[in-house]
Design a protein around this nucleic acid. Sequence first.
RNA 1: GCCGGGGUGGCGGAACUGGUAGACGCGCCGGACUCAAAAUCCGGUUCUGGAAACAGAGUGAGGGUUCGAUUCCCUCCCCCGGCACCA
Length: 863
Amino acid sequence: MTDSYHPARIEPDIQQHWEAQAAHRAERGSGERFYCLSMFPYPSGKLHMGHMRNYTIGDVISRYLRMCGRRVLQPMGWDAFGLPAENAAMANGVPPAEWTRRNIAHMRTQLKSLGFAIDWERELATCDPDYYRWNQWFFLRLLERGVAYKKTGVVNWDPVDQSVLANEQVVDGRGWRSGALVEKREIPMYYLRITDYAQELLDSLDQLDGWPERVRTMQANWIGRSEGAEISFACGTETIKVFTTRPDTLMGATYMAVAAEHPLARKAARDNPALAEFIALCQQGGVSEAELATQEKLGMDTGLKAIHPLTGAELPVWVANYVLMGYGEGAIMAVPGHDERDFEFALKYELPIVQVVSLPDGRAYDASSWHEDYVVKSGQLLNSGPYDGLSCEAGFEAIVNDLESRSAGRARVQFRLRDWGISRQRYWGCPIPIIHCDHCGDVPVPDEDLPVRLPEDLVPDGAGNPLARCEAFVNTTCPKCGRPARRETDTMDTFVDSSWYFLRYTCSDNDQAMVDEQTNAWMPVDQYIGGIEHAILHLLYARFWTKLMRDEGLVAVDEPFARLLTQGMVLAETYYREDAAGRRQWFNPADVDVERDDKGRFVRALLRSDGQPVHAGGVEKMAKSKNNGVDPQALVDQYGADTVRLFSMFAAPPEQSLEWSDAGVEGAWRFLKRLWSGVRAHLDTGSAGGGLDPTRLDQAGLELRRLLHETIAKVGDDFGRRYTFNTAIAAIMEFSNHLNRYQQEPAADRSLCQEAWTGIVRLIAPVTPHIAEALWQSLGHAGSVFDAGWPAVDESALVRQTVTLVVQVNGKVRGRLALPPDSPREQVEHLAMAEENVRRFVEGQSVRRVIVVPNKLVNIVVG
RNA sequence: GCCGGGGUGGCGGAACUGGUAGACGCGCCGGACUCAAAAUCCGGUUCUGGAAACAGAGUGAGGGUUCGAUUCCCUCCCCCGGCACCA
């Protein structure tokens, strides 16, 4: 053992040793299986702090459970298809395949240098044909079952680049490269019927009790089940079908509104140029919901009249940009009296507003301004003819019944969730295995011809999909009739790739089948860890895909992830200077020095290169745009993997955002140095001397041993149940402070010190595995610390001689009592009253109550 | 706009079931060691008053429930995540 801690010397050796021993192979061990999965990274170039944090959390859990005797699978792979590779190709002229594979190689090296207990034999990349062939194979099964189907969908269209744009490529309504105004355009796409699974996806959320409540709530709201009615309004020879959650307010409907894309709107526009112009206006802008929901409400009368199915009254039909074609029927009955958006619209276009539900406490209705209580369902119907006086519930039922008897409507459940469009007009993705034949139509590629390989040498240029221009790919023959035909050039949404990768890890060596019996042996994933930003889409699609595979008889589980941990973002301070035009130039925190006053408060920040001040821009998510990224690799090179791992686990609990601090890293480094020198000092005193005999310990020894076993209990609880690694580490630090102090006493018991150090080394091992292995051997053990087992709590060591009770008067602390545990209530009260300081506050007042919480607190209520 | 989450010392955070607010770490202040510096070690550190004992205030703002509220309820402010083609 060296005198001081040198991570650069020990870490590579230990990593090589693990590799030589195949220490992280999932088949090792004999205990119950545990599948610990971290969300796989997009290979963007190099590891960032978010990855580092995510995988450290997974590694701590994996290594802790491994020490507890579980057989742990911790795999790793690459979410390797996607837009950034195409953007990099445009910038550098390098094919996405080459760029991606180079990034993977580099990031794999980085992950290895961090010492994660990953079973690398199962590694996969979604851009490998061996992986994506199964996307294609399963897509064909879904097509056979009718789960996959084709229909048109709306996309962002850049008229200059002649390209479909992703939502993030639309900036302020314009294409990010061309600057052209973006238009909505309808194109044919493949969809998956996730709405057929909406009810099951909603219902089984209840079983996911290992998921954070907020994620379940977000998913439930996303699925958005609502009970209401479908109502048909005659409109000339056509019918306008609407869905409403408030059929009870039908008598308050004063106009109809349809989406700009609604067939009726298009028809009406044919001989109405003004309306056609308005519809064209609605086609401008992007398709994202945030954009649609925040735009100004606009509308135009079509001149058409719809017939109210109960009263026969004529209602004007409007086109309105707040009605979405993608939700419900693309048309609504507007009840401005009891819907805020309809109200706003009616007020703007001077449409009639009718109150049909009475307000609570007989409040007066005000048709000139909106009030929240207009949507309440607790009142009685009025202005509703035969339904007057009914409650909303009764009115709902009566009106739906009447509609049904006239074949003008029925009760129906509607989901907010829409079917999943999986077609992407992009090159770097999994080809959709379809061949278009002029004679046979859309023909699935036969299973034996899979995979449809993506050519890997194309370079996108931003103008459309290069795959569509790749003759060698596009031109083929029809599998049915053998005549010349064209391949589909759309690729799959990358969410398809990430919807089942966790299944493939369990059987990645099987080239005959998508999954096998190993899959059912490992599934479900016991613990899934990833960013909160995936709370809805990725997790919902993965749940859905798992159910699809279950219904195909491929997997046994209903739900893929038993327990979910959503980690927070990694943040860092930002610094900038403003130029004359008000543009900000951002400086990396590593290049800035901070001056503080003598109370440690921030005074100013100076750029190291020129000594001149910069502005502090607050703490933000690490991002290229703010130049506040901290490179984990630089820190690993400087301090070693253990220090970086330790700080990232210590600085915040996993669910919260983590603020990066170089000074904090320094603190983690100091702790590991003290740990090293503490063990070193212990070993320098000579032999540990026989076994520990607790009965021969003095007061200080008993106290230290109690702290040791309290710490073992606390750390095990924090690692195993709470997943609050920060408090586990704090407890280990606290105990090691005590131990360092204790072992400097001349009367310190050497055997107790030995027990304590071997305890600490095992407790910290999941977080800082390299130093733990090294110290474990220094303390005289052969073999790996991860084979040593988790330390056991000695219950007898936990017994306390005294407990401290707080004495309060009227809820304010006025004194403390040191008493044997479980002292009788009378004695506690008596001693509390006798306290000098307590008497001062009780004197002259009458004692009304005395509350005693055993072993904790006495509160004397006076007054 | 809609859905979800958060706000505690100079800073990151702790307080797990309504019971001592500020564990642990950073920073800062003072001291030891050193020719000196770095590193290391020891002590102090919520704010206000006080030499101290101690007292008062204090968990985004305001109100409520309770013997007792960071924790439960109501109203408001600010920050962050998601919104279906970023992953």
